[in-house]
Design a protein around this nucleic acid. Sequence first.
RNA 1: GGCGGCAUCGCCAAGUGGUAAGGCAGGGGUCUGCAAAAUCCUUAUCCCCGGUUCAAAUCCGGGUGCCGCCUCCA
Length: 479
Amino acid sequence: MSKSKNSRLKLYNTYTRHKEDFVAITPNFVKLYTCGLTVYNYAHIGNLRTYIFEDVLKRVLLYNGYKVKHVMNITDVGHLTSDADEGEDKMVLEAKKEKKTVWEIAEYYTNAFENDLRKLNIIFPDFHVKATDHIQQMIDLIKRLEDKGFTYSRDGNVYFNISKFTDYGKLAKLDIDKLKAGARISIDESKKNPFDFVLWFTKSKFEDQEMKWDSPWGKGYPGWHVECSAISMYYLGEHFDIHCGGIDHISVHHTNEIAQSEAATGKKWVNYWLHGEFLIFRQEKMSKSRNEFLTLDVLNEKGYSPMMYRYFCLGAHYRQPLTFSYEALNTAKSTYNRLVNKVIEIKSNIEHSKQNIEFIKSVKIEFLSKINNDLNMPEALAVLWKTLRTDEIGNKEKYGLILEFDKVFGLDLDKVEKLYIEEAKQKVDVKLVERLVKERDEARNRKEWTKSDKIRMRLVEMGIEVRDSRKGTTWKIKS
RNA sequence: GGCGGCAUCGCCAAGUGGUAAGGCAGGGGUCUGCAAAAUCCUUAUCCCCGGUUCAAAUCCGGGUGCCGCCUCCA
């Protein structure tokens, strides 16, 4: 694919705070790491927004002809409610609540999360791996840091010493001297510097901490940040292309990941840092710790399918906060339904063809320039709508473009027809419906309007929408 | 206190120097026995004040309001 200047892929890099031309370390090959979920509860739709953004990124890379090796971790190690060894362990807490072991909790919510990814048509990572399966890699990394003098032990825990790492906080533009330590939490007295962080815990306040492993520093468990560094380097090498996560990870998690990774290897770790903005819920971010979060299943019960939610997310740029409301979600629902109707209609009349090489070429270039401009999905969707509406090309050509664009949108537009037929079979007695539709048609031909309207009423009650046209009557499940 | 973001039509939301994308909702028309669906047309000068410029929603300064991170969190 030859690319003009403005269709080259540009991504906003948090590290430099600029949109940059994307250049892969290895030509045509991208090594991508995305931070996964902490599996002590269901993913809420705010979490899922970020995974949709990352999926779009991956699809755009694939669309541009790159091969992508994608790794995502599963945080299944218990984590504290703070970086200090205080507060409660969320995995333990949830386990107690549900009267299960922490292992059972992790497995249950990992499955739930992976199901959500499938429902959202998110291309599965090549490696979706558990932190607890990589304890050895973490220990090895900590050892390297220890050998190089970046750590110290205090009161049973191994800490990373940020004062030994020159560029600490560069990603978040932190000014350590000006930061008010302990502004919101009490200072951990064991730390030399308030921003030092734990690499390995051997001392826990929790007697019932189930997850413990042997290590050179004693039996214990790893600090939170170390898993991402260890796992990403194990699968992708010590220098890779892109690392993603939510915007909340910039100042602590990713900052610490960079410190420990680059301290260990002595070289640049990640080239591009991409962060997804939050879903805003009633004026504030949706949060797991406040019990008001919505899941994909809850939305589904309320009549909003995962694809509708995906469309909803595509309507806003990933670096902008997106305001959630049912009014807005209804918009996405109507729009998605209309899109699906359009696609089915186009496909049902696919023999209609009108070639226009110039138009097809220009609309493809336009699409590419939108998605390559830091993944501008709202504008890419506008290109899709323009394509659906145009008279410049026929249905056959439109359908081809729809399928091509949907490689990036991931809205399942290629199987939408099949899905609708399956849905219909599940929900209604298809034979009965077709008999009634036929009866109604016959009545209409005899201009027996009372009878035909009566039959239509009955169909409506069954949840069937009847559509008359010159070509005859069709029907579909009301959405 | 530090860092970061946001304020664009009723709603969601693009656009970041050259005269306001798109979707939804609303209004009007076409089609239809009626309806639905479809389709066409239609709706904003961009929070306020000041500045730079031939030209600003877009840059600069000030103000107001809102939000996020700095604590596990996408």
